[in-house]
Design a protein around this nucleic acid. Structure first.
Lengths: 266, 266
DNA sequence: GAAGAATACATGTCAATACAGGTTTATGGA
DNA sequence: TCCATAAACCTGTATTGACATGTATTCTTC
């Protein structure tokens, strides 16, 4: 395990990282069989259980596939070994070599509507509200509204124009313990959005309502994004541990839920 | 573990299911601390490792939260204990007591475009193509195009009007080994879609392109859905082990990728 | 040479034990 | 009563050992 013996990490984490590194460096190449659990245990001087735990994580991440009775293999499709993390707006831009920017349109405390309280999962009178215009190389792409519980009021004293909530909130450190609830709609750009996004009113626009909560049920925040998909596309990759919960409206005759916020309140 | 001793299941599965049942029946209620791992091991007459494995699955599914040094607790937010599976169109309708129906608009083998071959991840000349109109209580909501590798040609001899691909394809049995790649766009209803969906041309419509593949890199199928969100809304819940890979178009100046299929080819 | 049996090997499952480190509760002194 | 300490308890991590089951290879037999 080389000189990388950071004492803070667990054994199975160190084993996992070393195997991961060997895959990255091509020591184990796509399609190759990697040494058996028994051999790895001997090589790293750990128990087989520890090796199995490391391999389990690699299987979860898509780097390794196992075949009972045969062995463990490096995933032959290198592209399928997706990074195991969430990319924020800022991160995605950086990865593509374009410059993200944010203009804070509004940041403050507002009275909570009944719907906000419900979405945030707790009775509350006030919420922290952000409205941001996100641009790529100066071209406006997304209008985003964020709604956070009052315990995040401290955010208002920070400069949020360059950062994402993803990297700011300590609650979001361990993504594996976060539930994302997303609802997707298509709607048309109204005059307010058009002037912010510098586009034609009546253009189609993607409307995403997202709610983040911990697996223990605590709400973190909710947001609402209007994404001009002609300028910025939203892609999501996910492993099968999610549920779609489509809901037909036609049957109940109920109209579409309106936006979380009264747009005229600015 | 009652009389439910199905020999086919593993021990940790039986333990997990029994704890799950006790949570469902209210023996362990939300917020309650469930017996310690040591106690559970003694009660079920299994080792602590087996109990931990059962609990691990329950934590993954969101039913249980653990606190180091303190104990394991039933997730206080019952709503957060989401079912650990994907809901198909048919399933979601059934759950809501409305009647789903599908009209097959087209089903057959077509010549593969370069883009289809790329999306399906393998060189191919032909693909199986389905076009379906999905309705809720007779109201058309979704136009769906499916593209499958030729090994699924046998589907064409089945009656697909009542079922979903999800429950039909054996490849989709273990959802935890499936990658979903989704891309969301908003666009406008054209004349073809309008006549199928019985709606106004120019209405905003949600356009989802989805690709399913195994963690070992094998493509299963790709599809393209046009969802009238005013009649049927798409919600997605997911745990944090996914990635968003938004891509800015503004920078490169590249135009939006066109549909997978030439719409006029019908 | 081909088919089937025997063998070696790899992963899957499970048990029993040990210790580290965090949390809760009980104890005891100021 | 309040606070600090100690003990009990619980989860996290790791080891060793064992057996079951599926896969691949080799050997034997026809």
């Amino acid at each position: 395990m080389d000189g990388d013996t950071t004492g803070a990490l667990t054994l199975h984490d160190r084993v996992r990282m070393d195997i991961e590194r060997k895959i990255d460096e091509g020591v184990y190449r796509p399609g190759d069989r990697i040494p058996s659990e028994h051999q790895l245990a001997e090589r790293y001087a750990v128990s087989r259980v520890t090796v199995r735990r490391a391999l389990e994580a690699l299987v979860q991440a898509g780097h390794v596939v196992k075949r009972k009775g045969a062995g463990s293999y490096v995933n032959p499709d290198a592209g399928a070994a997706r990074p195991y993390r969430v990319g924020s707006f800022s991160e995605n831009c950086a990865r593509r070599g374009v410059t993200p920017s944010s203009r804070i349109v509004f940041a403050g405390v507002v009275e909570a509507t009944a719907e906000m309280a419900e979405v945030l999962g707790e009775p509350c009178d006030e919420v922290v509200r952000l409205e941001r215009l996100r641009c790529v190389d100066g071209v406006p792409c997304i209008v985003e509204f964020d709604y956070l519980p009052m315990r995040f009021e401290y955010l208002l004293s920070l400069d949020l124009s360059g950062v994402s909530l993803f990297t700011t909130l300590p609650e979001l450190e361990d993504m594996s313990k976060i539930w994302f609830d997303d609802q997707f709609d298509a709607c048309l750009v109204d005059d307010d959005l058009a002037s912010l996004l510098e586009c034609q009113p009546g253009s189609p626009i993607l409307h995403v309502r997202e709610r983040l909560s911990t697996t223990s049920g605590e709400s973190i925040y909710a947001n609402e994004q209007f994404i001009l998909t002609s300028r910025y596309s939203r892609e999501v990759s996910s492993k099968g541990n999610f549920i779609r919960c489509d809901s037909p409206y036609a049957a109940s005759g109920a109209s579409h839920a309106s936006h979380l916020e009264a747009r005229g309140a600015n």
